[in-house]
Amino acid sequence: MARPPRVRRSRGRDPLGLRRALSDRLLPALVAAMALLAAMALAGAQGAAELTSRWEAGAAAAVTVQLPPGVASGGRLERALAALEALPEVAEAQLMSEAQMQALLRPWLGEAPAVALPLVIELRLAELPASPEALAGRIAAAVPGGVVESHGVWVARLVALARSLQAVALAALVLVAGIAAAVVAVAVRAGIAARRAAIALLHDMGATDADIAGRFAGRAGLLVGTGALLGTLLAAPVLAGFADLAAPLLGQVPAGSLAGLPWESVPWGALALLPLLGAALGWLTAQATVRRWLRRLP
C-alpha cells in the first residue's frame, strides 16, 4: 500500500482560524495594561493592610490621662477611675503599671529613672468620638487637674482611613477584573463575527458546543494569560519603587537606587497568581460568550 503523502497541516488544529480572528497583539496588550493596574491595586490593598496593622497597635490606647501628683492617696485614684468608667464613651479605664511606664519611658530615662514616674490611666473607647476635643473636655472635667492625651483617636481615624483605602483598592481590583472580562467578551464576539461561517460549518458537521467554545476559550485563555504575565512583569519594578518611596512611613531607609530597591517588599505570591487568574478569567469569559451565542443555532 502506498504511503499517504506528507502534507502541510500546520493549521489543521485551528479550523476556525482563531490565530488570526483573535489577534495576538491587541488583546494581550489591553490585558497587560489591566494586569498592571490590578497588580498596583493588589499591592495598594496589601500596603494599606500593613499600615492598618501597624497603626492599630498605636490606636489600642485611644486616650491616656496623666493624673496630677497626690492622686494616689485618699481614695482619689479609685474615684477618678470610677468617674472615667462612668463616661458613656469609655469601654475600659485601667491604670498603667509601673513596669509598663518604665518600659514606655526607657528610651528617654534609662533603666533606673531618677525621677518619680507619673500615674497614667489608659482609656479604651467604646467607639471613636465625633469630636476628640469635646471628649477631652469631659474627661478633664471628670478628673480635675488631669492631662488628657487623645492622639490615639487620630491614629484610630488613620486606621479607618487605611481600611477604606484597602477596600477601595480591592474594589478597583474587582472593577479591573470586570473590565478585563468585558474586553475579552468583546474580542470573542468580534472573533465569532469574523468566523461565523466556519462556526456554522463545524456545527453542521457535528461539532459540539463544548468543542467550539473550547477552541475559543483555549485561545482566549492563552492570550489573556500572556497579557497578564506581561503586565505583572512590568508591575514588579514599579511596585518595588513604590515600596522604596513608602519606606520612611514604615520606619525604614529608602534605597534611592534601582539596585537597592526593596524587591522583598513586592507581593510576589499575589503577583504570581495574576497570570493564572487572568487566563482563567479569559477562558471562562470566552466559554460563556461562545456558548451563549451557539444557543441560537439549532
Binding site: 502534507v7 493549521r11 489543521g12 479550523p15 482560524g17 456545527h203 457535528g206 461539532a207 468543542d211
Partner: peptide, 29 residues
C-alpha cells in the same frame, strides 16, 4: 449530524485550511 454528509452549493471550504485539512475536518470533529 456526524452520520450525515453535506455537499453545499457554494462548497463552504475553509480558505485557511489545505485540501487535506478541509477533508480531514469531519474526522477530527
Amino acid at each position: 449530524r456526524r452520520r450525515i454528509g453535506v455537499v453545499y452549493q457554494d462548497f463552504r471550504l475553509l480558505p485557511h485550511l489545505t485540501v487535506f485539512d478541509n477533508v480531514a475536518l469531519p474526522m477530527r470533529i
